[in-house]
Nucleic acid binder design. Structure first.
Length: 510
RNA sequence: GUCCCCGUCGUCUAGCCCGGCCUAGGACACCGCCCUUUCACGGCGAUAACACGGGUUCAAAUCCCGUCGGGGACGCCA
């Protein structure tokens, strides 16, 4: 593992610190992306830290799913840590804070104060009797094995004002008197041994403590995170201050809070309430290109201010600044029928169109295989340019190109074979003529173009009218890629066979 | 309840800091037209917003105050 302390000074150090309590959330993904952009834009270091101090809720499956999601995005990181492997550091810090008198033990049974939240009375600041408890009594009860949580002793009655300059929201201030005595360590059961005179050792650090200690230890210089942390920042300021002598060279990070991503009804996106639409694997599996998805997410709460929407990653990186970040929450659209924001879909289509054929083919191959098609590389390469402008999501390719791969066309309505303002007899005539023409014409675009147009003219038909029966016979549907290219990819044999199969269908309609 | 944040077309946003160039720009979606062998792409066009009320000013989307609305935090979750 790289030694953080050896990293060059003055170079920004960013971190993304997800907690593994489920799949990677789109909001988290955006936070990661913005951190990454800032780091890469400013020659900084990107740290990935798994914040897994909540043993109750964390799962290894969730860690894997976060890695899957991050890897799919294709944005790399430079250092990687797990908070659960750094508990000793957190405990040492807690002990130091306690020793300095900046924290106290709270023996109130866990969860006891929870329902005070549901009532609508004033804000809770601390549990009665705990903050004031004499040290001797506190020590005695701890030594007796009574469980306790460790709480920060927030300065009160001094009129102390906490302040910081947020990179997005500007100058922020709050009275310390309004900050509650938040927990640093959770209560533990009876200590397994008497190893600590303080009896602190079994308590798991809370998010606030672990996060700040690690930020200090990893020398994080910029914290970019969701706006839901804006008011927590005052607590973090207090912790950083208390940690000053443990990390003498550490400078309090610069903070920048991001507007929240919200559901169409304006509520915060949640895994529980909104389901799979907030998981980035849903986008991946539907056939979004990661660069398109990143593009979309960047436009939620940030603007390049140049009227551009379709932006390749390197361009976003070069353009990214905190000044471009908005303050108002951004709605991400989805409904039960259509789980994807139309703008995300449009951007994806744009990115698909921008892909070189070889790359598109590489993306398409697994999609076709998954649909059960054989999909040899050569064929996918030939098909890709024909559907590139016709699909919005990669998975659309299955629908758009199935007839290139299947042996037998799925059943279709024979009436489709009959052109506009035409009758069955006309369709029959067209197909029979086409059989003769296709049997002798060279199978390349220009030759087919010339021959088929000529045939249409000789039958006294407009090209459009003559082409429809052929298109339907060969593709099994009216909407398809341009005819000549399609015929070429299909090949003479398949085309003749399918036209031969179409003819009898027409008989019943005559 | 307490504290904090936010409020420009349906949505994402430009403009706001440093009032006039804003009869408010772009994009998505929707609608219409054109191109065209179908579909799509592309082109053109239409509809659509400064939350409200006061104030300051010759002039306010832009500055100030208030109201209303929305969101967030207030856990031994993160």
């Amino acid at each position: 593992m790289p030694d953080a302390a050896r990293a060059p000074l003055n170079t920004p150090r960013l971190r993304f610190a997800p907690s593994p309590t489920g799949f990677l959330h789109v909001g988290s993904a955006r936070t990661f992306i913005f951190n990454w952009l800032y780091a890469r834009r400013n020659q900084g270091t990107m740290v990935l830290r798994i914040d897994d101090t909540d043993v109750e809720r964390n799962t290894e499956a969730s860690v894997q799913s976060i890695f899957d999601g991050l890897r799919w995005l294709g944005l790399n990181w430079d250092e990687e840590y797990r908070q659960s492997e750094r508990l000793a550091l957190h405990h040492r810090a807690a002990e130091a804070i306690f020793a300095r008198g900046l924290a106290y033990r709270d023996f109130t049974p866990a969860h006891a104060g929870e329902d005070s939240q549901s009532g609508a009375q004033g804000a809770w600041l601390s549990n009665p009797g705990m903050r004031e408890m004499p040290r001797a009594e506190s020590d005695r009860r701890a030594a007796a094995g009574e469980p306790f949580a460790l709480r920060y002793r927030v300065p009160r009655g001094e009129g102390r004002v906490l302040r910081f300059a947020d990179g997005v929201y500007g100058e922020q201030t709050k009275l310390a008197d309004e900050v509650e005595d938040f927990a640093l360590l959770r209560s533990a059961g009876v200590p397994k041994d008497g190893s600590s005179s303080l009896g602190l050792w079994d308590g798991m650090p809370t998010y606030h403590l672990a996060s700040c200690v690690d930020d200090a230890d990893l020398r994080i210089s910029h914290i970019i995170r969701g706006q839901d942390h804006l008011t927590n920042t005052f607590k973090h300021l207090l912790i950083f201050e208390a940690l000053a002598s443990e990390f003498p060279n550490f400078v309090t990070p610069q903070f920048a809070h991001l507007p929240l991503l919200v559901a169409p009804d304006g509520s915060k996106l949640s895994k529980r309430k909104h389901g799979p639409v907030v998981s980035i694997t849903t986008y991946r599996d539907a056939g979004f290109l990661p660069q398109a998805f990143v593009n979309f997410l960047c436009l939620l709460g940030w603007s390049p201010k140049n009227d551009r929407d379709f932006l390749p990653l390197d361009e976003i990186r070069d353009l990214f600044t905190l000044e471009g970040v908005n303050r108002a929450n951004a709605v991400i659209n989805f409904t039960d029928e259509d789980p994807f924001d139309p703008k995300a879909v449009w951007l994806n289509a744009e990115h698909i169109r921008a892909l070189p054929v070889e790359e598109l083919a590489r993306e398409l191959e697994p999609v076709f295989r998954q649909a059960g098609f054989e999909a040899p590389r050569e064929k996918v390469l030939a098909v890709a340019p024909l559907i590139r402008e016709r699909i919005k999501l990669l998975r659309d390719a299955v629908q758009a190109a199935d007839f290139f791969f299947v042996d037998e066309l799925p059943a279709y309505d024979p009436a489709e074979l009959i052109p506009q303002k035409g009758v069955a007899a006309m369709a029959v005539r067209v197909l029979e003529t086409a059989q003769q023409v296709l049997a002798v014409t060279a199978f390349d675009h220009d030759a087919l173009d010339t021959a088929l147009r000529q045939a249409a003219a000789s039958m006294g038909l407009k090209a459009g009218q003559a082409f429809q029966p052929i298109r339907v016979a060969v593709c099994g549907r009216k909407n398809a890629p341009p005819l000549f290219e399609t015929l070429v990819v299909l090949g003479r044999e398949v085309c003749l066979k399918r036209i031969g199969q179409a003819l009898p269908k027409l008989a019943s309609l005559a």
